[in-house]
Simulated assay, not measured.
Amino acid sequence: MSQEPQTLDDAPEGLEALLPSVVDHVALARLYGEPLFTMPRDLYIPPDALQIFLEAFEGPLDLLLYLIRKQNFNILDIPMAAVTRQYLSYVDEIRAGNLELAAEYLLMAAMLIEIKSRMLLPPKKTAEGEEPEDPRAELVRRLLEYEQMKLAAQRLADAPQYGRDFLRAQVHIEQSLAPRFPDVHVLDLQSAWRDILKRAKLVQHHRISREELSVREHMSIVLRRLQGRKFVEFGELFDPEKGSPVLVVTFIAMLELAKETLIELTQAEAFAPIYVRLAYTPA
Score class of each variant (00 low, 15 high):
232 V>E: 05
241 E>K: 11
223 L>W: 05
250 T>H: 04
229 R>F: 14
237 L>W: 03
257 L>R: 04
238 F>E: 01
249 V>P: 03
233 E>M: 11
255 L>T: 15
234 F>V: 05
258 A>M: 06
222 V>G: 08
235 G>T: 15
255 L>I: 15
232 V>D: 06
254 M>N: 03
234 F>E: 06
231 F>H: 14
240 P>F: 04
236 E>Q: 12
256 E>F: 12
245 P>G: 02
225 R>I: 11
245 P>Q: 04
231 F>C: 14
222 V>E: 00
230 K>D: 15
234 F>M: 07
225 R>G: 10
250 T>A: 03
232 V>P: 01
256 E>D: 12
242 K>T: 03
251 F>Q: 09
226 L>R: 00
257 L>F: 05
237 L>A: 05
244 S>T: 13
233 E>T: 08
228 G>V: 05
242 K>H: 04
230 K>Y: 11
225 R>V: 12
244 S>Y: 03
255 L>Q: 13
235 G>N: 13
253 A>P: 00
232 V>K: 02
257 L>V: 01
225 R>Y: 08
228 G>S: 06
249 V>H: 03
235 G>L: 12
251 F>W: 09
245 P>A: 08
253 A>H: 02
250 T>W: 00
245 P>L: 03
221 I>V: 15
238 F>S: 02
239 D>F: 01
223 L>R: 09
246 V>M: 04
231 F>N: 15
249 V>C: 09
222 V>R: 06
245 P>H: 05
253 A>T: 00
256 E>H: 13
230 K>V: 11
224 R>H: 11
